[in-house]
Design a protein around this nucleic acid. Structure first.
Lengths: 244, 244
DNA sequence: CGGACTCTTGAAATTATTCAATCGGGGTGG
DNA sequence: CCACCCCGATTGAATAATTTCAAGAGTCCG
């Protein structure tokens, strides 16, 4: 079980080995999803939570004209619908952006953990609050940054989060998203994303092509993005590496 | 103690009277803050959570040029920094927008509740996830709506939330915010907020003046805001009233 | 090979920002 | 008590950022 990715390199990780065992034991089956397949539907009553083991997943909200806003992105080690445990359902759709593997934890098991393992409960709770912190940062990103800043910020964040789970070397990483996806996440049009990516590339800041990203000048990129990884609640070692 | 406002008219409220008593007993003192006073500083280690009893509070993030993005607004009955309990600190500032009264719950008491009261723990957890759901809706608001839509959405949301705690009659409500505050919440400039408010007023949709808001045509307002209160997790009675 | 989808670029239109100036109310010091 | 000052609200004009519309090129897949 790759559940060891959960809260990996996050400062709020639960260190108790007993809790770790109880956590691992609470998963039942593993499931695979195809790219663009919906994992969770908005409003649907939920009885299990999904931990992402492999692939990329997005939280999405569609407007009346069918235009989509991506309101969250998830990397391996993230629960994608744990919010549905205390709330009963979630208010948005969750879809696989790539081929995806998830592990299932029934709400019944979660209830048992909450009733018996306070430290683990707090860690699970904290993991959902990392989502909230990331949402806040996205509000800042979209509300206060221009196109170059938003896109830079998105890549800085994904690099840091992927690195925390061993999926980036600090410079290059696989990222199977289209420019359309980036537009939907950054509140921009695909056309403008395209132009802005070209400009970032020509300025020697960022390369994004064929599902692979490379931070050519991470320092300047973080500057444009006003990126400060405090909101990721990384452990001290990772925080230093994130260049804060 | 007005802690009865907590999760009032929300579907995730904890109904157990024992839990209610334990909840009320976990508060210590009550404190008052002046308008614009900072309640919680970003990164500061926290040892208590604050429940807002009276007034308006904002979660804010400032960019490098000192421009401010409001990433959350809170009404009475909301915890304003409960995220700091599982996380240890919060990643943003919390400031009073008006004169404010808060009740303090020490983290030590919260730890005891988490260790002994699973249903209450889940309700506290859920309350922080309502914040996350609201954050997501704000991402959608700023990412996909134009100025009129953003502002309309903000007023629809505040009306619904204030009504849930008895501070709106469904049409008029006190809202001690400036146009500058609205701009900082909606990712717009104050000038453009002013023009857009004028246009909404001239179209007979929304009146906002002297700290008082009135939804002149709630139906059309919800339409241009694409407002759907599902994300507020209101109880069924309130949801019907919110016009969904 | 055809079709669907993404990427790319140009040009025009629109939305929002910036700069600048005025107005008005509330509070303060003389 | 009143002139003055500060801040928010308001409006106009110019500018900048982003979107929209349109079209062509590249790529993958059946």
């Amino acid at each position: 079980m790759r559940s060891g990715l959960f809260l990996k390199h996050r400062s709020v990780r639960d260190a108790d080995p007993e809790d770790q065992r109880a956590f691992d034991a609470a998963f039942t089956e593993t499931r695979h999803l195809a790219p663009r397949q919906r994992a969770v539907a908005r409003g649907e009553p939920l009885d299990r939570a999904l931990l992402l083991l492999d692939g990329l997943v997005a939280r999405v909200m569609d407007d009346q004209k069918g235009e989509r806003q991506i309101v969250g992105l998830h990397v391996p080690g993230d629960f994608v619908d744990l919010h549905g445990f205390p709330l009963g359902y979630i208010d948005h759709d969750v879809i696989a952006m790539t081929a995806v593997t998830v592990a299932m934890m029934p709400h019944a098991h979660l209830r048992r953990l909450v009733a018996t393992r306070p430290a683990l409960t707090t860690a699970l709770w904290a993991s959902t609050l990392l989502d909230a912190a990331t949402h806040r940062e996205w509000i800042f990103r979209i509300g206060r940054l221009d196109a170059a800043g938003r896109i830079s910020h998105m890549f800085c964040e994904l690099e840091a989060r992927l690195r925390a789970v061993g999926l980036s070397d600090g410079r290059r990483f696989a990222l199977a998203l289209s420019q359309i996806d980036i537009a939907q996440a950054c509140g921009l049009t695909p056309v403008h994303v395209n132009r802005t990516l070209r400009s970032l590339r020509e300025d020697g800041l960022l390369l994004f092509r064929n599902g692979e990203a490379e931070l050519l000048d991470a320092e300047r990129l973080r500057q444009i993005a006003e990126f400060n990884p405090l909101y990721l609640y990384l452990d001290s070692a990772s925080l230093a590496a994130a260049g804060d």
